[in-house]
Computed example of a mutant assay.
Amino acid sequence: MAAPGRALAVASPWAVVPSLGNLDAYISAVNRLPMLTADEEREFARKLKDDNDLEAAGKLVLSHLRLVVSVSRKYLGYGLPHGDLIQEGNIGLMKAVKRFDPDQGVRLVSYALHWIKAEIHEYILKNWRMVKVATTKAQRKLFFNLRSMKQGFKDDEGAATHRDTLTDAQIEVMARELNVKREEVIEMETRMSGGDVVLDPGPADDGEEAFGPIAYLADATQEPTAVLESQQRDVMATDGIAAALEGLDARSRRIVEERWLKVNDDGSGGMTLHELAAEYGVSAERIRQIESAAMKKMRKSLAAFA
């Protein structure tokens, strides 16, 4: 195995970042960083887990920055800055490195993919519209598929259609392929096609002050109680969930992760009850029972954690 010092000579992630604002140079720099071998990856992950070695964590992050760049390119169609998408993906990567367990027998790239996509998805959903357009699992799936499916429809002449609204036939196709109700497709299309409202219009043409919705919005984000509640939610959603999962057996943990925590490329969730039943050779009802018992145990763990 090559010496760890040779694998990544750069000690700090900031050393590879070029001049401020030069995104192309940053992408070029991270693409030149060498990937770690499986043995090197396990060694650095072990140092981080056992000794809290931050230098080892930095090397794990550095070797996967190119993965973030690759994933972020898939989300450029939402009109958000590429640099911001990369930044959010890097946050997800760092979360993955912090929680990565080298004893699980998987490579960091597979484990980090979920965290990177989750952070980018959350950023898009929060910033693409001031009002959230997708809150439920089904709505998220619609949000990340509606645009691409709409662009892929063909008109009668065989050319891609650019209609502003969907036809009844197109709505039926989307509902069937995404396994949602046609009313949900119509609702999401309405949300996504709605116009944005300027919160702060600035001075009016006559020089007088113009008023917009921002004048009526109070910023309560820094209110102490709200800050404490937000911090507690963050801890419960990360460390609390991780601790609760650790208390489950391998089968129960995988069922919960597939059913509730996994996010696919299209924004949908993991395996269904029937798919898990086929894999484990039991009935779907048995999988549901295992899931229910695991969730009950996790709720007790989260209550104790809180």
Rank of each mutant, 00 (worst) to 15 (best):
L142Q: 02
L125N: 01
M174N: 02
A11K: 08
Q222M: 12
F100Y: 15
G270W: 03
D234K: 02
N264M: 12
L142I: 04
D103G: 06
A11Q: 08
Y78T: 06
M130W: 09
Q289N: 12
E41V: 04
K154T: 12
M192N: 05
A284R: 01
H121E: 13
W128T: 13
D156V: 06
F211N: 04
A210L: 04
W128M: 15
K98F: 11
F211R: 08
D206C: 08
E184F: 00
W115H: 13
L178T: 08
L166Q: 06
K296H: 09
Q289A: 13
G5V: 10
V180W: 00
A29D: 09
E291P: 00
A112R: 01
D53N: 15
R176Y: 07
K59Y: 12
R254E: 14
W115C: 01
G195Q: 11
A277R: 00
D200C: 07
G247W: 01
H121W: 14
R286D: 06
A306D: 02
E229V: 10
R129K: 14
K181W: 04
L245Q: 07
L273E: 07
A15I: 09
A56G: 09
V61M: 11
L108K: 02
P81Q: 07
A25S: 15
R259G: 04
V227S: 01
G5F: 07
A226W: 12
R32E: 14
V263M: 08
D239E: 15
E177L: 13
F153W: 10
W115S: 05
E157D: 15
S268I: 11
G105M: 08
E177I: 11
R254L: 13
R73V: 09
K117A: 00
A45F: 00
M94P: 00
A218S: 12
R251H: 06
R182Q: 12
Q232P: 00
Q170R: 02
S292Y: 04
Q104E: 15
N264V: 08
R259A: 12
A138L: 14
D103T: 12
R6W: 07
K132E: 05
R254H: 12
Q87W: 03
T225D: 14
L93Q: 08
I116P: 01
Q104D: 15
A56Q: 08
R176F: 09
T167F: 11
P81K: 08
R6E: 10
S63F: 02
E209D: 10
M188D: 09
H162R: 13
P13D: 11
S148T: 13
A38K: 14
G194Q: 08
K141F: 10
R253P: 02
P34D: 07
L217W: 14
S301V: 11
S70P: 03
R176T: 11
D39L: 09
A9D: 07
Q232I: 05
N145K: 08
R129E: 05
